[in-house]
Write a protein that binds this DNA or RNA. Structure first.
Length: 485
RNA sequence: GCUCCGUUGGUGUAGUCCGGCCAAUCAUUUCGGCCUUUCGAGCCGAAGACUCGGGUUCGAAUCCCGGACGGAGCACCA
């Protein structure tokens, strides 16, 4: 009889083959700010370190000078901080070049790598037929000589190849490139180096030297993991546990970093934090909380099949958090002005309404009730003539033609007539609002006077409208970014 | 084309390795009801899934074969 399966803990699934503490790394290429796909790796790494103990390494993989955005180094760290992902050690690969050279040399010396001067197409042809290229069997001394000359060679003249199985059933695995010449200025090291390691080489060397126990990476690296295993073997190193997760797509934001960059350059997007983009900063700007993203990633976990995340899902998670924290305000989008005739003197004055219905200790906001008010055009139209409309916490009115008439102030009366109960703001003292929607369109309206107390970054619940984050404040208006209902 | 990989309700997941306790978990979503001067939350109730076809077996979401669909890779990017 076999033993029973272990009982799974709720939430994030366990990492395979854990013995004691783990050493994990998050290793992005600095080509732009982090996007939602990065968040998956970052959050999972963080959570696993939290679960098992150990450490998280941040490693910036900038070994292709052409694919480095100098601004990305800082943006990525900012994004990680927003995600509340901390790292215990940080490395930048462009400052570790001598290390890669040393191991490259070693690999040549043990005859597990060779300098290849074949033209790319020729090599591919041979490779596809499982044929070694002529360089493969030249003496080690020959490779060493060429290796020493590589830094003076032109781009493409020669590469260093790792010996794998030339008959490997996947052609991609056969004798892959470890080192090559790149004639481009590196944002950090300038022209100091011309010979750069390929990702598969530097990653393997680093993962080993840094003692990484588990490698969490996207399934687009499946073949790379296979390639890297050969290098571990050649050096006699222990292979870490590879975990490949699937692609993460966000509904409506299928944009890659390169497309987003293009769009920004073309002026199509306002910047990396344009609400239409899937970057961490765009999501943050929309009032999505770090907690919601973390929960989402833990729920999705590290499984290899692809996941399409809907905004409904994100909103649901986020709402549970914001509901508790967000204070309430009245916002009137697409406003129309009403002027209540015969509003009794006794009704005119300040209406108090709690900032949060479940937390009266947070206090009240004050809404001046006076004849001239804004309500939404939609509510106005829906009500039509001769039906009661209830202004929340205030009075009942009816519309007759273009006149607005005071009806009563009794809530039950409004209820009995099935009146809509709607938000309103006074004309006097309310603040202009630009509401930036997820598709970057802007809805204009007014927010109640007490919103002047808000600070940039605050997320509020605009009653009957939804959650929004205050993005900027000027003398003439407040700009909010809409999150969700 | 070649090489890998995946497919559980609308969505996201658990379960698949080691077949029975799975007429399938949890969350979200949707729809009712209660409550509530917003939305929501809360409480109660409901809806909704094992990609398909064979096979093995007393028994299959789970194992085997085949198909469909989807994805990734096939670079001197990471």
């Amino acid at each position: 009889m076999k033993e029973k399966k272990p009982v799974k803990v709720k939430g994030l699934v366990d990492l395979p083959d854990v013995n004691g503490k783990v050493v994990l790394r998050f290793a992005p290429n600095p080509s732009g700010p982090l996007h939602i796909g990065h968040a998956r790796a970052a959050v999972l790494n963080k959570e696993y370190v939290k679960r098992y103990g150990g450490k998280l390494i941040l490693r910036i993989e900038d070994t292709d000078p052409r694919r480095v955005d100098p601004l990305a180094y800082q943006m990525m760290e900012e994004d990680l901080k927003w995600l509340s992902v901390d790292w215990q050690e940080k490395y930048v690969q462009s400052s570790r070049m001598e290390i890669y050279y040393k191991y490259a040399e070693k690999l040549i010396e043990i005859n597990e790598a060779y300098m290849c001067t074949c033209e790319g197409g020729d090599f591919k042809k041979l490779k596809d037929e499982c044929q070694p290229c002529p360089c493969r069997d030249l003496p080690v001394e020959h490779s060493i000589k060429l290796w020493n000359e590589l830094k003076t060679m032109k781009e493409g003249e020669a590469v260093l190849r790792v010996k794998t199985d030339i008959k490997h059933k996947n052609p991609a695995i056969r004798d892959w490139v470890a080192m090559r010449v790149v004639e481009a200025e590196h944002p950090l090291t300038g022209n100091k180096y011309r010979v750069y390691p390929m990702m598969n080489f530097s990653v393997t060397v680093d993962d080993h030297l840094m003692g990484v126990t588990h490698v969490l990476r996207g399934k687009d690296h499946l073949a790379n993991s296979e390639k890297q295993k050969y290098l571990y073997q050649h050096f006699g190193w222990k292979v870490p546990v590879f975990v490949h997760y699937g692609r993460l797509k966000m509904e409506d934001v299928a944009l890659s970093t390169s497309k987003a960059r293009q769009g920004i350059e073309d002026g199509l997007y306002s910047g990396w934090d344009d609400p239409r983009l899937g970057t961490i900063r765009a999501i943050a700007r929309r009032g999505i909380t770090q907690e919601a993203i973390t929960e989402l990633m833990m729920e999705i976990g590290p499984k290899i099949s692809d996941a399409i995340v809907s905004w409904k899902k994100v909103s649901g998670l986020n709402r549970a958090i914001l509901e508790e924290t967000s204070n309430r305000y009245f916002f009137v989008p697409n406003p129309t002005m009403i002027d209540i005739e015969n509003l009794p003197e006794s009704e005119i004055g300040i209406i108090k309404r709690p900032l949060h219905p479940d937390h009266i200790e947070r206090g009240n906001r004050a809404l001046p009730l006076e004849p001239k008010l804004y309500i939404t055009m939609e509510d106005y139209k829906k009500t039509g003539d001769n039906r009661i409309l209830r202004l929340i916490d205030a009075v009942n009115v009816t519309f007759n033609g273009d006149k607005t008439v005071y009806h009563s102030n009794d809530l039950d009366e409004a209820r009995n007539s099935k009146a809509m109960i709607v938000q309103w703001v006074p004309v006097e003292g309310s603040l202009n609002v630009d509401m930036v929607m997820p598709n970057a369109s802007v809805i204009k309206g007014y927010v109640e006077p007490s919103a002047s107390n808000l600070s940039v970054g605050d997320v509020v619940q605009l009653e009957r409208f939804g959650f929004a984050r205050l993005d900027s404040v000027t003398d003439e208006k407040l700009t909010f970014y809409f999150a969700h209902k």
